[in-house]
């Protein structure tokens, strides 16, 4: 037994070993703490984006497509972001495990606490609009993200089922509008009998029927919610065609 002790002590002396300095461990703990906090903050931003995407969703139009509330919910869930939240929660949980006392807390308590914290911070982030710049940056710099968003919007274009959605390209003095739907096709719609006030660039959704290759007759029309909806008043109710 003394042989091992002698070997250890000799190695310490011979190689002039000294205990690693305190700051080395302090730095490691700070980095770990920062990583946990960052993960939770990123998760919170994702929560804010999910809240925004669900609030911006036009449930009336979706329900027209799917016919049920549950199907509507499944149709428009921002799965990517929900998956991302899951990943951040898992990462936070794993990182907490590597802290000195993380293992002493029940995993269920850690999971609940991180979810509650992410939801609270996420709601706050949504409240102050912190999610918008994040999404705008992703849209601009990440092509797959933009494509994913276009695909989600395109789900609102089902002309065979009497639903189109898109952006107003032109408005004539007679209140005939040209709208480019989210699949890229252009339609002309007569709004002369509507009290709806169209503007170029406005995103709208319409329920009605296809008249011919170019014309769509609306039964009701609605402005889609957009990012700036928090700051601007919208024409949120349906405008019916009584002609």
């Amino acid at each position: 037994m003394d042989k091992l002790k002698a070997k250890i002590m000799e190695k310490i002396r011979k190689e002039d070993m000294t205990p690693r300095p305190r700051w080395h461990f302090a730095l490691r703990h700070i980095l770990l703490g920062t990583a946990i906090l960052s993960t939770i903050l990123i998760g919170s931003l994702a929560v804010a984006i999910v809240i925004r995407q669900l609030t911006l969703t036009d449930w009336e139009l979706i329900r027209h497509l799917t016919g049920s509330h549950i199907k509507s919910a499944f149709a428009v869930m921002p799965y990517i972001w929900i998956l991302f939240i899951g990943i951040t929660l898992l990462a936070a949980d794993r990182l907490l495990f590597y802290t000195k006392k993380g293992h002493r807390v029940k995993p269920s308590v850690i999971a609940l606490a991180t979810v509650a914290l992410s939801l609270t911070l996420g709601t706050l982030a949504y409240g102050i609009g912190a999610d918008e710049p994040v999404e705008n940056t992703l849209r601009t710099h990440l092509l797959p993200y933009k494509q994913w968003e276009v695909r989600r919007q395109a789900a609102l274009v089902k002309e065979d089922r009497g639903l189109i959605a898109g952006e107003i390209q032109a408005v004539t003095p007679q209140k005939e509008i040209t709208i480019r739907d989210f699949r890229g096709r252009e339609w002309k719609v007569d709004l002369s009998h509507s009290d709806f006030s169209p503007e170029i660039g406005m995103q709208i959704g319409m329920i009605g029927r296809v008249q011919d290759k170019e014309h769509f007759e609306y039964e009701n029309i609605r402005q889609l919610k957009r990012d700036f909806s928090r700051r601007r008043t919208r024409q949120s109710r349906f405008h019916f065609n009584f002609r």
């Binding site: 250890i8 190695k11 205990p19 690693r20 305190r22 080395h24």
Partner: peptide
């Protein structure tokens, strides 16, 4: 076992500053 113990004690020594009385 001797190899393991030697490594254990050396690691313990090098990390002495990471030990705190909470454990």
């Amino acid at each position: 076992l001797e190899d393991i113990l030697q490594e254990t004690f050396i690691k313990t020594y090098l990390n002495l500053n990471d030990y705190n009385n909470d454990f």
